[in-house]
Nucleic acid binder design. Structure first.
Lengths: 258, 258
DNA sequence: TCGATTCAATTATATATACAAATATTGCGA
DNA sequence: TCGCAATATTTGTATATATAATTGAATCGA
């Protein structure tokens, strides 16, 4: 009945066995898992192998480890889950829709007070503000309002986003970043309602993202999705497998075939 | 100017150095990072140490590794971010509010077709359906609609949730689970509007969660938050430190001091 | 030229070992 | 009994080494 374990490495085998005991409820939160020495005897392998199993279990949050005390089953006081927020283009294309976008307007300006608060800067730098609508097969999919710091991305001064939308364009130039996402629900304002073709006040899923690169603010963006057309999906299972989230599905248009 | 690295382990030091090169844009996506042998010479340490640095970098998604080919800087085609969805009680308490809840109703029934679809089961098992409002200092905070499979949690048959709300009660009994979250924005229905004290049609942030335990469905829950009072916040930084998400903040009431 | 085979580079896993760091427990002395 | 020092346990890190698996590249033969 258990898995035949054809070619799975020792440390994954051990990790799975321990994860099973925990997730089945056999070992309750706070329970002490055997020490590395005990497991080493139990499984007939070296301490380093056991250590790898336990370390990865710990990094996935299933256990906590403490020197001299031992390893203990963690208490899950929160559900942590990984969501993938995709590039809008691939999000639409991979859903089987045809992608297009339109730049509504683009402006160069000195940062307003609002811009500064959004970018989390104090000095009044110059910014590009741009608003774009993305379409999934002619249907308005999301409204993108963006501010780009020219200090961080000087090339943006002369870029009009005719060949690529701001998100993709930036991703090309700012490869790895830190980000903060805020997800909320708001009623559509008049601008959003007009451009998304929805009723004013209709519920929208809003994702705001601030992006830094090595501490320096790069861009702020607000994505407004019509609430009846879009949702975020996230799967989570504690690491029995290698990855923390075995199959994190992307944000999807509603009404897809199950 | 760089960190003095007082007592940081070798492998973290190496990982940081590599992460810096990647995040600064010095090494673009697709760039081949030196092989373990090269890094081993470069840093004057053993291959296992380099391997640990690279493995953890890979598991955090900053690089991808392939045998015989080498390790390459990953292309960030999606922003993955971890959000923590807390136990509602601690969410409210840690925000400095006083927590209370009220069970609106609770029912035992054979699973309706809707119940079955929500729990992702086909057979008509018996379920408990319960609806609860949670308050943050008297203010309605969230509406919880829940279905619990009696096959998975028989004790729920006689539980009326007077000492603990269903979420906490379940967490006590079913600590480790897999879950799927769906986050969306919807206009408040009449029930939600009445119990949350908001206008019908007002935007609400809705989190639906299906929970399994070793493959068997346990519970389904829909949490409806008034959109103007609640948001989800998630921070992400690629692993320069040990953890993938250094400081994931919790869902928060709006209007907190910045 | 094409395909199969061999070779070699690189990562993946595993072992044995050593020492360091943290800290719970024990024991000793005042 | 109280405080402190010694001790032992457990995890954390590092090394040296060995073997396996994967697969790009080169070689060789027809």
């Amino acid at each position: 009945m258990s898995t035949p374990a054809k070619d799975v490495p020792r440390y994954i085998e051990i990790r799975r066995a321990l994860a099973m005991r925990i997730m089945s409820g056999d070992w309750r939160p706070g329970h002490r898992v055997p020490s590395e020495h005990e497991l080493m005897e139990q499984y007939g392998c070296s301490r380093m192998t056991v250590n790898k199993a336990l370390s990865t279990l710990a990094s996935s949050g299933l256990i906590v480890r403490k020197r001299r005390s031992g390893s203990f089953v963690a208490s899950p006081h929160s559900q942590t889950t990984t969501i993938e927020i995709h590039d809008i283009r691939s999000e639409i294309v991979s859903g089987g829709y045809e992608y297009s976008y339109a730049v509504l307007w683009r402006r160069l300006r000195n940062a307003t007070r609002q811009d500064m608060s959004r970018l989390a800067v104090t000095g009044g730098e110059r910014v590009v503000a741009v608003t774009v609508v993305h379409f999934a097969s002619e249907l308005p999919f999301v409204l993108e309002e963006r501010i780009i710091s020219l200090a961080a991305v000087p090339e943006a001064e002369s870029e009009h986003f005719v060949t690529a939308p701001p998100g993709s364009w930036l991703l090309e130039r700012i490869p790895w970043t830190q980000a903060e996402h805020v997800i909320s629900a708001v009623g559509a304002g008049d601008v959003a309602a007009a451009h998304l073709g929805i009723r004013e006040g209709a519920a929208c899923l809003v994702i705001e993202r601030k992006t830094w690169r090595s501490g320096a603010p790069v861009t702020w963006v607000r994505l407004t999705y019509p609430g009846d057309r879009h949702q975020l999906v996230a799967r989570f299972a504690p690491a029995t497998q290698a990855k923390a989230s075995p199959e994190p599905r992307k944000a999807a248009l509603r009404g897809d075939a199950s």
